[in-house]
Design a protein around this nucleic acid. Sequence first.
DNA 1: ACAAAACATTTTATATTTAAAATGTTAATA
DNA 2: TATTAACATTTTAAATATAAAATGTTTTGT
Lengths: 164, 164
Amino acid sequence: MNDEATVVELNHESRLQSEDHQSIRLWLRLLTCTNMIEQRLRARLREEFATTLPRFDFMAQLDRAPDGLTMGELSQRMMVSGGNVSGIANQLSGEGLIDRSPVPDNRRTLCVTLTDKGRKRFADMAAAHERWVVEMLGNLSQVEHQLIMTHLAQLKRGVTALET
Amino acid sequence: MNDEATVVELNHESRLQSEDHQSIRLWLRLLTCTNMIEQRLRARLREEFATTLPRFDFMAQLDRAPDGLTMGELSQRMMVSGGNVSGIANQLSGEGLIDRSPVPDNRRTLCVTLTDKGRKRFADMAAAHERWVVEMLGNLSQVEHQLIMTHLAQLKRGVTALET
DNA sequence: ACAAAACATTTTATATTTAAAATGTTAATA
DNA sequence: TATTAACATTTTAAATATAAAATGTTTTGT
């Protein structure tokens, strides 16, 4: 329902015009960038490894923590609810990619680790994943990378600083 | 399962260490920032307006397009699947917030518009939404805003430029 | 020691999301 | 004009997500 002359930006930012507030613009651009990258990664993971982004993320967190993580730690790091983590853990456990073992000190917690099979499986995916991300972001220079990192760090600080 | 000395960054970036590639770091920081903001907005919309982010986004796209949008246009702009848009449209239509009317030229397409009720409802939410975003991003200076916008624009170009 | 609070996780119910198949419509072309 | 391809949307099935309740464990305060 656009007339021909309209410049169509087919994403979130299309909602905006010049009078709108700068912060909203920034937020929508951030959202657009993230969504674009996320969708490409999701599609590739499905096509080439028949898996999903949440499952990849789950395994990535474990790969970075050789001593394992509790369910709660996984939930926090993945930024999703506890129930969500439980469900994904059930799947991966059923496929023999992770182990869940009790902790001596605290019978409330479970320690989740990658199995050998899981670690091998993840290694393949991680290499491809890194190639894809570099493909998407690699056109930025070292300096630009650093600048954006710094700016996003400050942005993050501002958001984190707010209560609740 | 972290020992005491470990610095715990409770988000996606915790997966990384210094040897990892810069592009991955940038991607994960982007993802973390977006998720943090998204979760806050989602919680606020639920608490104060008993609605969801996708529903807000749907209405926001329509508010910016007084002549209405087709389902496909909504899908593209919201960056979600067609089936998703159908579901949200059913809800909003059931609540009398949008209209779906056939288009004379093309019986395949539907033109979706906000009802008066929908437009009023959205106006309230949009004002609050803008306050929340400014609260989160407003600590950045004008100059920083502009810098990040520019950098993200270039990042976006790089991603868009890829085939598929 | 006991009650109450905090904690870690799972379960439940519901909503969202996606990809892919199905349906119906229009355009292209041979 | 048939036939095929492209298009717009909805439906379906499976996965993912959330909030809130339930369960069991540990800590705290009295």
